[in-house]
Design a protein around this nucleic acid. Structure first.
Lengths: 262, 262
DNA sequence: CGACATGTTGAAGCGGTTCAAGTAGGGTGG
DNA sequence: CCACCCTACTTGAACCGCTTCAACATGTCG
């Protein structure tokens, strides 16, 4: 089971009560004054409408963004002009940290629905993280979390057949909704079939076929974007378990067949 | 062309002269005293022999490691027991930062040849980065670099046919060797065909066939692990250019066909 | 309502895997 | 030093998972 990435709703305090920055400010138990400091650098901005860009590849890197509501996809463009979707971002997640080293955004972010975000000017955030205890660690931790996620996705793309990929996607979504206090068995997809296919490295038609197949198998009930999970267990069996560490890990990598052991 | 990830050899100073920690300590122009501080937390350890683990999935996270010489692969295990190689690490690179959020290693690291590393106890490193100007930013920057790399690899796995994947791999290797002052046209692979296949999400046989195909096309000369690149341009044409930002990026993602523009 | 985007379904084709067999290093022990 | 073995690698041929192409259905929005 992945570690909870945000804090329970009832633990949220004062200012950020109406804000989805849980993940960013809460986990290290912020003092009142520190919370003020954080609040002071946050820029509110008008919602990003469906299809609008929050930022684009190559934009100068000035801020990171915390999703308050709605959802966005990030994607890069390959040289042949087609896009590759990198990830889906839900409320409570921080986006844009991947631009730190290049000082410009390395992917574009587009809203999948009307989406509101908080803008955090990065320089001020970085400065603040030298002051506020735990903030530095938290930023580093968030990035490490993102690396873990990406590695998991790489494994999915490299190793799994298409049905397992879709199952992984759905299980992951379910978990994330559950963590946010929503139903983990019934939700609406904010991504189109096209986007899902792209994210999972397959053809749209395949996604379509898999949804009907899953439905015929009694795993799901699908109606357009509405998903109802009927048999979570089987889906979970199919999904890639990377990132789920448990006690007896030593036996997991016992047969490392590749380049020799001495 | 990816940004240079390490500093030119003649810019290296004093203590770390014999060390490949360029990337970690150099880019922000360390003061003499700060360099001492950094040196003081570094643990030297005996070389890791080929096939030995530097760390394993699930190991408690205590340190990050800078590769001084040699090379390592990192990999996770999927639930079916097979491994998925995540990346190859060459001298000058820092490994293990992905363990920050979970506090245990999320992948295993195994030496591909006799490899020497410097161990940096993470807690002390994090503490130090509150003191040494620029170190915090550098750590964040390194992680952002890793995210960029992973995203690039995701794109390769999701979109490219096998020949382009291998070309991408070789071009990437060539660049990294060049940056390190080695020949970018002639080098030895430290990975086995098996490992390469695994990393690129394909079958060993395919890698083998592609090498002979590339050779027949006059792109390469291959002899076992020794690679000589004969036509870099064509390989470069095949390779995925993600992460290579340039001035006219706005036209790159003009036709974003997926979920609507307003 | 018509037009266009999005989603579904079927049938053909192919890229890459899998299976099988054979070759070539590299190390070990006699 | 060679015979041996084991592993890494290569090559061929059959198969199949998924894509592609094409046609149709369903929503959605001006």
């Amino acid at each position: 089971m992945p570690k909870n990435r945000i804090v329970k709703l009832d633990e949220i305090r004062s200012r950020c009560q109406s804000c989805s920055l849980f993940e960013l400010c809460m986990p290290m138990g912020l003092a009142e004054g520190d919370l003020d400091k954080l609040d002071s650098i946050i820029k509110r901005r008008r919602p990003v409408e469906k299809g609008e860009y929050l930022y684009r590849v190559g934009d100068p890197f000035a801020s990171v963004y915390a999703v308050r509501s709605g959802s966005l996809k990030t994607f890069t463009s390959t040289r042949d002009g087609r896009d590759q979707i990198i990830s889906l971002h839900l409320p409570g997640e921080l986006m844009g940290l991947d631009a730190i080293s290049s000082n410009q955004h390395i992917c574009s972010a587009m809203a999948l629905e009307t989406t509101s975000v908080c803008e955090l000017p990065y320089e001020r955030l970085e400065a603040l993280s030298l002051e506020i205890p735990g903030l530095q660690h938290h930023l580093l931790s968030l990035m490490s979390e993102e690396i873990r996620h990406d590695q998991c996705h790489m494994t999915i793309l490299a190793r799994l057949p298409v049905d397992n990929r879709l199952a992984s996607f759905l299980v992951n979504l379910a978990e994330r909704y559950r963590t946010r206090g929503f139903s983990s068995t019934e939700f609406n997809l904010s991504m189109s079939r096209n986007d899902i296919a792209n994210l999972l490295g397959m053809a749209v038609e395949t996604v379509s076929r898999l949804f009907t197949q899953f439905q015929e198998q009694g795993l799901l009930q699908v109606e357009r974007k509405h998903i109802k999970i009927l048999n979570y267990d089987i889906l979970h069996t199919m999904h890639n378990r990377c990132g789920e560490l448990d006690a007896n890990d030593e036996e997991a990598d016992k047969d490392n067949s590749s380049s020799s052991s001495p």
